[in-house]
């Protein structure tokens, strides 16, 4: 049953052996690596940039938060018409386009659509209307505004929303609230958004966005998607060189090394056709899948497995052996 070539005793026949203490080597390695780790940890510490909260967003970029919330109601953010796994983009379905602005496919390969909606997200209600509904319990003015918004026809709502969104484009902050030129044209939205901003600034919206009917919470899909829909979080990421088109996948906050081992993965996002493709993510994943398979199968691939014979690095690794072989003719 012994397979030839796999049995060590056969394999090493005629090979000169030398004493080698594996356990001592491992012990020395453990101590040496620990010493290096302790020095690096002690001298350089580790990165820990505090998380962004909805509260800090409201404090540092209030108009962006209000504009994002308005866009959620309009269904014009990334998450509101994303497609699977979060939702189906109704507008797209009506216009016979792929059911989601963020759905990627490569020819007939459309795994995102195949997998379907598993994490249902309705950004308008979960990020804006539901939190406002909860906040309106002690705010009759807000309750009235919400009632008016909900009772209005779809066309009326969309008129208010587009007027309000346009006004926000040149709004300024005064007394902690957005000031727009013609509040009446935006219906109940100025009241709704002013309250949303006040609740957000107090920290209340952080809690309301996680309100799920469960006591315990470990899933931050809703708030993270909301943060990602705005410009504040991506702006901070941009400043730290963390965007996809900044080789961001390799980078780390502060002056720390990042995931340098992802250099090839992030490289594709910098060059055409990937950098300009709307399905870049899928293309990169497929490319890396093929390349990973090639790496896995190197021992079987003519060409790839022969490179080591052409590059004389092995002559350095085993130089003692080759030197000795030249000295004593082989038997």
């Amino acid at each position: 049953m012994r397979r030839r070539g796999l049995d060590q005793s056969d394999y090493y026949r005629g090979v000169r052996m030398a004493p080698y203490d594996l356990v001592k080597e491992l012990a020395i390695a453990l101590v040496a690596v620990l010493a290096v780790v302790l020095i690096l940890a002690g001298v350089l510490s580790s990165p820990d940039e505090p998380p962004v909260t909805i509260q800090s967003w409201a404090q540092h970029a209030p108009l962006d938060l209000v504009a994002t919330a308005t866009a959620e109601l309009q269904g014009q953010t990334i998450s509101s018409d994303y497609g699977p796994p979060y939702n189906i983009d109704r507008d797209a379905v009506d216009h016979d386009r792929p059911a989601g602005a963020s759905v990627q496919a490569f020819g007939p390969i459309a795994p995102q659509s195949w997998a379907g909606v598993h994490i249902p997200i309705t950004a308008a209600s979960s990020d804006v209307l539901h939190p406002l509904q909860l906040a309106s319990a002690s705010d009759p003015k807000l309750a009235q505004a919400l009632l008016r918004y909900r009772a209005a026809a779809r066309a009326q709502r969309s008129t208010w929303l587009s007027r309000y969104a346009a006004e926000l484009g040149h709004a300024h902050m005064a007394g902690g609230l957005p000031v727009i030129a013609d509040p009446a044209a935006a219906g109940p939205l100025p009241t709704m958004m002013a309250t949303l901003l006040l609740v957000a600034r107090s920290g209340g919206l952080d809690g309301l966005l996680l309100q799920s009917g469960h006591f315990y919470q470990t899933d931050y899909t809703g708030p993270l998607l909301f943060l990602g829909d705005g410009r504040y979080l991506p702006g901070l990421a941009h400043a730290q060189h963390l965007l996809g088109d900044q080789w961001g996948m390799m980078n780390e906050t502060g002056r720390y090394p990042g995931q340098a081992w992802l250099w090839l993965y992030t490289l594709w996002y910098q060059i055409p056709p990937y950098s300009t493709a709307s399905n870049a993510d899928l293309l990169v994943v497929l490319t890396m899948g093929v390349l990973s398979a090639l790496l896995l199968l190197v021992p079987f691939l003519p060409g790839l497995r022969d490179i080591p014979r052409w590059v004389p690095i092995y002559r350095l690794i085993w130089r003692e052996h080759y030197r000795e072989a030249r000295r004593r003719p082989r038997g």
């Binding site: 080789w247 390799m250 990042g258």
Partner: peptide, 13 residues
């Protein structure tokens, strides 16, 4: 060129 590398990553490489 199109390569953007952080100094810490460059040191590590």
């Amino acid at each position: 060129g199109f390569v953007v590398l952080s100094l810490p990553n460059l040191v590590l490489i």
